[in-house]
Design a protein around this nucleic acid. Sequence first.
DNA 1: AAGGTAACCTGACTGC
DNA 2: TGCAGTCAGGTTACCT
Length: 263
Amino acid sequence: MLRWPIPAGLDARLRGASIGALTRRGKYLLIEVRDKPRKPGGDARTAGWLIFHLGMNGNLTVTDSDRAAGKHDHVDMLVDTAAGKRLLRLHDPRRFGALLWHDAADGEPESHPLLAGLGVEPLSEAFASARGARLLFERSRGRKLAVKQLLMAGQVVVGVGNIYASESLFQACIHPLAASGRVSLARYERLAQAIREILAAAIKRGGSTLKDFVGSDGQGGYFQLDCMVYGHAGEPCRVCGTPIRELVIGQRNTFYCPSFQRV
DNA sequence: AAGGTAACCTGACTGC
DNA sequence: TGCAGTCAGGTTACCT
């Protein structure tokens, strides 16, 4: 049992099928599942999509087919590869992750309830240049929600987790508690640009490893070392020397420089 | 409808 | 050594 039960009958549905396109939406991973052609030489048909979420600590690995399942290994899928039989294994100690099925009969995966309300990809054209700023601006008018919560809600832009929200707001000189509906377009332009830069830098550094995160190469990331505010409560701001402050917004730890991050 | 908050669950760490 | 308490990279569900 992960966040939700794994769909009943999933194993039978996957048996004999093949893997199609691998895509991602926000923090959800999508594996297209294709059925065998009805007759030899026919076209493989999209049966549906496996939707994975890794929660806080989950991981998906490809491992030897005879490797015994360990603690917190929840799902094994036996896959024929060019290198022989391998196991695609879902491991998730904290069980905040999920494995769901979206059937092709229900349309594109974007229509799945968990994906339907997601905002734009931060590194896509839809968030590029002034467009991201305009999205944040327009979608926040009339709202009192703190700007950090707006970022993390994923309804306007996805992928901005707790670390990157604090870091982006620092770079844009915006106080995390600023009412999102009162932030100007000009400041959202700084923020959108900060989000793109911070995420690109984090990707370049292989992500942020606070404890156990590893990337697809099995190596930890180093962006946590570049964080200006996250995890630095009480230390001098690397820009102005003012001690970094920490507060809790929406149950999440938040770090900021009280000197030049303004509401 | 928006906003707050409780919940899901385990492991690592701290302090007594 | 052990036990209790606290805290984590995310997201949904359920109140008001």
